[in-house]
Nucleic acid binder design. Structure first.
Length: 1041
RNA sequence: GGGCCAGUAGCUCAGCCGGUUAGAGCGCAGUCCUGAUAAGACUGAGGUCCGUGGUUCGAGUCCACGCUGGCCCA
């Protein structure tokens, strides 16, 4: 006996129960070790999740993929590592800890104590790692949770040292001066990766028009435009576009100004153009700078320089430049030999040499700058200028561009090496490779340093003498250390403890400290295929698991972040691909397709989602989706998944259990051989085996969506055709071979389907498995079962075709019937079927009984020429005609359209070829649709035609009434609260016509309603109702026997 | 300015190797069925498959050039 299954189900409660059962039975441990002795391995490398906040539903999406692929491979018998990872070093952690401590900037962190601060960072990571672990378990994500790796681990950090050492040995590490985007609050530079991700906001800045008086041209000035007033203090040059036309114009108040001709409107009305010239004519002119009185400006030669990127669409076409405060400006300054003035310190305040500006923040000097310009009489105008401007992606502070010393890995040699490695990876979706290569072509050298506290301690020791060294391991550090080892001992290789170490400069012998910088966090994640696989200590183990078989991560961003760092580090260390396949997916949006934001209120918390929609539904939505496109996620779509798929599946399962229990079906007994079962059974078994094949192929290719779509189609077949068509086989009283066959077939379908679904919906399938699978040798958990194997000998395309034909004809038949307005309960005499080709006649033969039942007709007949259908449409079957006749096709088509359709259809339906001038079309090459027929209701589609007779004879009407009566009695049985299998006595009383129906169909009514006897009259002991039967009143009573 | 991706029904999306009559779900209007039932089936309305040109007997599908949107880079 199976546990009875309620038709209504609380999936969420079921998930909680299943979680508890897994825990009690320690199923996870059994799963993790299921393939310990397997010779084949599958190496999944987990991209570490940032352990800085609770997990969201977008994380759940990615973690579902990770889980699904690993579960699938487990069922396939692959040995795996199941190691989860947490990412925990870097600025994003620092920012949150700063908020918790209410610290405002780097100086306050230093006052607070770097050691305490760093410990709190570690503590935060551990806290959220624990929470994310709990959430992941709720998601049904099965990993070896007490073996998760951390990027903040010593091993991870030291392995990065090893990588940096190799880079250094190849000469790729250098310290460079560059203008970098800089966050004055965080006091650190941002790499370009960080700035492009989420770094821009719409901000209103002043658009400032300033006159730069030309030297040697009295009363003439350049009209210059800028949106960053503070940079004027560091101005050293002005750009013009050499090819554009500039104008010299006199304004109403007599000033003579130069600017782009197309921007003359900036001067307002009433100006006179004195002269026009190309920008090239202005190049080389000298001007008086706006802040020449500042000490730093002493001796600076301000001149006009050509630059082809000057835009015509904004400003004046004359761009002020401060090479110490702009990235492109700095590059041009190197080319043109311009003076470079670096105005800002770490916190965005002016450095020494700026007189009254020194010590003031860039954010507070605008008014002072305007006053000074006004005083000098060179301020022309100020306007409001809204534009997109970069902000710090962690704290939202406006960035400044600042001249700094940072550490880089040179990409000039590596670039092409990485590209070659990238090509060895299978990218899913395939455009991933193109994106990665595009990034590789365009990227600059990799800036690896960050002037912060919590992160990889860059093992670079730079001496006053200019020499620097990279330490490659903890052993080397201890060997080289000449000071500070005692303070460091017992600590992780982090600031501040590691900063105590001094080594001896191998060039000059001085004692040298580590540079203060920490590392770019993508180093932390990129080293994982080495650090977590024992690269430094156990090469044999590492070789067993490297390269990985698969990683999966959200692609926006990762091409320049994790994918990039993985490829780079693996190229440097081994010149090998870190993973054989990279699976990636797009972004999650809300149900309306808008970005999810906590502040917008449309974000969904993982816990809410898990408790309201259930994680199986969530996982199903994820897996059904094409990962290359954004996923619009919410409660509505999950609800739909539950209704459309899960409840349908559950209903089939519940149906099976109900009848299996009634019939005491025992799956341990031998089932009838498949080849002896009826067509319907062999058909669904065939579909099942095709499903096994399709799902297996899809998951082998890391594609969940085609697998899920195939499963949906199968469940639809199972529910809306197999069970629907088999119901009477389960209802009937006789326990014969046919019934056993039906039970065995449905059982096999459910058990096999359940395994196929197990990776995607681990909870529902576990619940079904535990109830359904009682056979000897079955695993206690579905997740410990072996993956089903396709049995090709059970796949029969002819059965599939026949079933599809039956479904199609049924659908057309229902369409034809619905036009008559007669209920399906009313039997009709005849069904005429027009087939697309003669070959389908045998298929029709095979399914005609199903059609009779499904459409409630007495006979089915193939439509022939003798059936007098009044009008036909004939068409060529292009899939056959096109390839056969090639360029003659148009002639064949026109000949066919000229022919008489009635004659053509007569030939076709009798299976004879159709002569069309020089051509002879085979009957299978023509498609006939019949559109109308006297006395019939017709429906036609795609070459198939179905017609039903509309005439209801007295006999048919009586039978229809009998069916109606059965229907009413069935409902009464339910209203009376009888059990499905209760036997009853039925009483009836009404007019003569109605009573005649009972008498004429006595056997049928008794059989259908489990009535042992039909009694004319009424009984007080019976549950009694009055019914209107085609205008006549009938009183019916039912009594349990 | 360069690269990548997408554009199919009101919405969200399928559509394999080109086959002439393009599908699903949701939504809308209606009908039916119901011993799987807080489901299900069917019917209907709704489509210049972004545009233009090309290849082909035949193009939603392949090619070229555009347009629009998104992402990335400059």
């Amino acid at each position: 006996m199976f546990e009875p299954v309620p038709s209504k189900v609380d999936f969420v409660q079921m998930e909680r129960d299943t979680l508890k059962w897994w825990e009690e039975q320690d199923i996870l441990t059994k799963y993790l070790h299921a393939n310990d002795d397997s010779a084949t391995t599958f190496s999944f490398i987990d991209g570490p999740i940032t352990a800085n906040n609770p997990m969201g539903v977008h994380h759940a999406w990615g973690r579902t993929y990770k889980d699904v692929f690993q579960r699938y491979k487990t069922m396939r018998g692959f040995k795996q590592r199941y190691q989860n990872g947490f990412d925990g070093q870097g600025l994003w952690i620092e920012v949150e800890v700063e908020k918790e401590l209410k610290l405002n900037d780097k100086r306050e962190i230093e006052d607070f104590g770097i050691d305490k601060f760093v410990e709190l960072c570690k503590e935060r990571v551990r806290r959220f790692a624990a929470q994310q672990t709990e959430q992941s378990i709720r998601l049904g994500y099965w990993m070896e949770w007490d073996n998760s790796y951390h990027t903040m681990s010593d091993e991870n950090n030291y392995t990065i040292w090893r990588f940096l050492k190799v880079c250094h040995e190849r000469g790729w590490i250098y310290e460079g001066t560059d203008v970098m985007p800089w966050c004055p609050r965080c006091g650190t530079g941002l790499s370009e990766h960080e700035i492009v991700t989420e770094g821009y906001q719409e901000i209103v800045h002043p658009g400032l028009y300033v006159r730069f008086p030309l030297i040697g041209r009295e009363n003439e000035a350049l009209l210059v435009w800028t949106t960053t007033p503070w940079t004027l203090a560091a101005n050293t040059a002005a750009y013009v576009h050499p090819d554009l036309t500039y104008a010299k114009a006199r304004t109403e108040n007599g000033e003579v100004l130069y600017l782009l001709k197309s921007r003359l409107s900036e001067l307002g009305a009433g100006h006179d153009v004195l002269e026009e010239m190309p920008g090239a004519d202005l190049v080389g002119l000298r001007y008086k700078g706006p802040f020449d009185e500042l000490p730093v400006q002493e001796g600076v030669d301000h001149r006009v320089v050509a630059w082809k990127e000057v835009k015509e669409s904004e400003g004046t076409g004359i761009v002020h430049t401060a090479p110490g405060a702009g990235k492109e400006d700095f590059e041009i300054s190197k080319r043109e030999g311009l003076a470079v003035i670096a105005p800002l310190d770490d916190f965005g305040a002016f450095v020494d040499g700026f007189d009254w500006l020194t010590g003031k923040s860039v954010f507070e000097v605008n008014e002072l700058i305007y006053d000074s310009l006004r005083e000098k009489g060179i301020l022309h105008r100020i306007e409001q200028y809204p534009h997109r401007y970069p902000v710090c992606w962690r704290c939202g502070t406006e960035l400044v561009f600042r001249l700094v010393d940072e550490w880089f890995i040179s990409m000039s040699e590596l670039r092409s090496m990485i590209a070659e490695v990238a090509k060895k990876v299978t990218w899913i979706p395939s455009f991933g490779l193109g994106r990665e290569l595009d990034w590789l072509r365009n990227m600059d050298d990799w800036m690896i340093s960050k002037k912060r506290f919590w992160g990889l301690a860059l093992p670079i020791f730079k001496c006053e003498c200019g020499h620097f060294e990279v330490v490659g391991s903890e052993t080397e550090l201890k060997e080289r250390a000449v000071e500070g080892l005692e303070q460091f001992e017992g600590h992780s290789p982090h600031r501040p403890w590691i900063d105590a170490i001094r080594i001896e400069c191998s060039r000059c012998g001085e004692r040298v400290a580590r540079i203060k910088d920490v590392g770019n966090p993508w180093l932390d994640a990129g080293i994982v295929p080495f650090s977590t696989l024992g690269y430094r200590h156990d090469r044999a183990y590492w070789r067993q698991w490297f390269p990985g078989d698969l990683i999966t991560e959200s692609f926006p961003g990762q091409f320049r972040n994790w994918f990039y760092s993985l490829l780079t580090m693996s190229t440097v260390l081994e010149n090998a691909e870190p993973t054989r396949a990279i699976h990636s997916y797009a972004l999650m949006r809300d149900e309306k397709g808008e970005e999810m934001h906590k502040s917008k209120g449309n974000a969904i918390w993982f816990e809410d989602a898990a408790e309201r929609m259930g994680v199986d539904a969530m996982r199903w939505v994820y897996c059904l989706h094409n990962p290359a496109s954004n996923l619009n996620f919410g409660f509505g779509v999950a609800d739909e998944a539950r209704r459309r798929f899960m409840i349908t599946l559950w209903n089939v399962y519940s149906f099976f259990i109900t009848y299996a229990n009634i019939d005491e079906f025992d799956p341990r007994n031998p089932a009838p051989p498949v080849e002896d079962r009826p067509d319907l059974d062999r058909w669904i078994i065939s579909e099942l085996n095709s499903l096994v094949r399709d799902v297996t192929r899809s998951l082998d290719a890391y594609a969940t969506d085609p697998a899920c779509r195939a499963a949906e189609r199968f469940v639809d077949y199972l529910s809306n055709w197999y069970v629907r068509r088999s119901r009477r086989r389960f209802w009937k009283s006789a326990a014969d071979e046919d019934k056993l066959s039906a039970h065995a077939t449905l059982y096999e379908c459910l058990v096999t389907l359940n395994k196929l679904l197990a990776p995607v919906m681990p909870f529902l399938t576990e619940s079904i498995h535990r109830n359904l699978e009682r056979r000897p040798g079955a695993a206690e958990s579905v997740h410990l079962e072996a993956w089903p194997k396709e049995n090709p000998s059970h796949v029969d395309p002819a059965l599939s075709d026949a079933a599809r034909l039956a479904m199609r004809l049924s659908s057309l038949g229902r369409s034809a019937r619905s036009k008559t307005g007669l209920k399906v309960r009313q039997p009709l005499q005849k069904l005429l079927v027009g087939l697309r080709s003669k070959n389908e006649a045998s298929a029709l033969e095979a399914v005609s009984v199903q059609l009779l039942e499904e459409l409630n007709v007495k006979e089915v007949e193939v439509m022939g020429p003798e059936t007098e259908v009044s009008s036909f449409e004939v068409r060529a079957d292009m899939a056959r005609v096109g390839p056969k006749y090639g360029r003659d096709t148009p002639k064949v088509l026109s000949a066919l359209s000229d022919a008489d359709p009635t004659e053509v259809s007569a030939l076709v339906s009798s299976g004879r070829p159709v002569p069309l001038g020089p051509y002879l079309l085979g009957p299978e090459e023509v498609v006939v649709n019949a559109s109308d027929k006297e006395g019939y209701s017709v429906a036609s589609e795609a070459g198939y035609t179905v017609a039903v007779t509309t005439n209801v004879t007295e006999e048919l009407a009586s039978e229809g009434s009998a069916r109606e009566i059965v229907h009413r009695i069935q409902n009464m049985r339910r209203s009376a609260g009888f059990d499905i299998s209760d036997r009853i006595e039925t009483f009836y009383r009404g007019g003569a016509a109605a009573e005649a129906v009972f008498e004429a169909h006595d056997g049928y009514i008794r059989q259908e309603t489990l009535s042992d006897v039909l009694t004319r009259g009424e009984s007080p002991a019976a549950y009694t109702e009055s019914h209107d039967l085609g205008g006549a009143e009938v009183t019916i009573g039912v009594r349990r026997l």
